[in-house]
């Protein structure tokens, strides 16, 4: 098998899920942060373009509802897949993720000669994934408090409403900043994928990138020891750098 061969990574369901999430997230960020940063002219422009703050809030709330549905569908699919269809629970965090993180640090500082040997999802991807899940739950629950404050105040103290607002607003900013720095770097500006990591659009990834980024998974697919894959292809950044965009 040549290094340039393409390996299937995502099915249609996962691709659709990502694209739907991306659109809903963008909508939420635009309609939400325009409220948090209400002093800025761009926020005024967004609000007026959407037909006023009341309309913007309606859009925000229903986008939020859609986001909640996406999360719910994802979790149901995940549980169903893992339990019934016996999918490997590849997103679960395990001790290797922490080891990989440390090894990658060593590699960055020149102590190790090669990056950490990661499985299907590396620790960076798992960090983002669980960030979305945990943050999503926080955003959905606080968002619901803000949507139905009167009903919430029947069972909880009134202070929970401003507290929910503080959490919702801050968590949104955090999520937005993580996405625009970390996610956009890793999928667009990283020299390994520049100008764009197409895996989530085409569902395919080059064998070369697999060797570099997910050698453990590739070894399992091709039924060879990991060490052999690395040795064969001169495992390192210099080789993988050219594979970007495949």
């Amino acid at each position: 098998m040549t290094a340039h061969a393409l390996i299937k990574r995502f099915g249609f369901g996962r691709i659709l899920e990502h694209q739907a999430n991306a659109i809903v997230f963008t909508l939420l960020v635009i309609t939400g942060l325009a409220q948090r940063f209400h002093e800025y002219r761009v926020s005024h422009w967004i609000t007026l373009t959407l037909g006023g703050v009341d309309t913007m809030r309606v859009v925000h709330r229903y986008s939020g509802l859609l986001f909640a549905c996406l999360i719910l569908v994802h979790i149901v699919t995940g549980i169903y897949g893992v339990i019934i269809k016996r999918w490997p629970a590849a997103m679960m965090i395990n001790i290797n993720d922490f080891r990989n993180a440390i090894e990658n640090m060593k590699y960055y500082f020149g102590i190790n000669s090669h990056p950490a040997l990661c499985d299907r999802y590396d620790y960076k991807q798992k960090f983002e994934y669980w960030g979305v899940i945990a943050g999503g739950f926080l955003m959905i629950s606080t968002g619901l408090i803000l949507w139905f404050p009167v009903d919430v105040a029947r069972v909880l103290p009134g202070e929970f409403i401003p507290a929910a607002k503080a959490a919702h607003s801050n968590e949104a900013l955090l999520a937005f900043l993580v996405i625009v720095t970390w996610h956009i770097y890793n999928s667009v500006f990283s020299p390994e994928v520049f100008p764009l990591d197409t895996a989530i659009f085409t569902g395919k990834i080059s064998r070369e990138r697999m060797i570099h980024e997910h050698p453990v998974e590739l070894a399992r697919i091709e039924n060879v020891p990991v060490e052999e894959l690395i040795k064969h292809n001169g495992h390192g950044h210099s080789a993988s750098g050219e594979s970007g965009g495949h």
Binding site: P149, V150, A153, R154, P157, G158, E159, I161, P162
Partner: peptide, 13 residues
């Protein structure tokens, strides 16, 4: 906010 008695007004600090 219909039915906003009870602890709801405490939402305003």
């Amino acid at each position: 906010h219909a039915g906003a008695a009870g602890s709801f007004p405490d939402a305003w600090l």
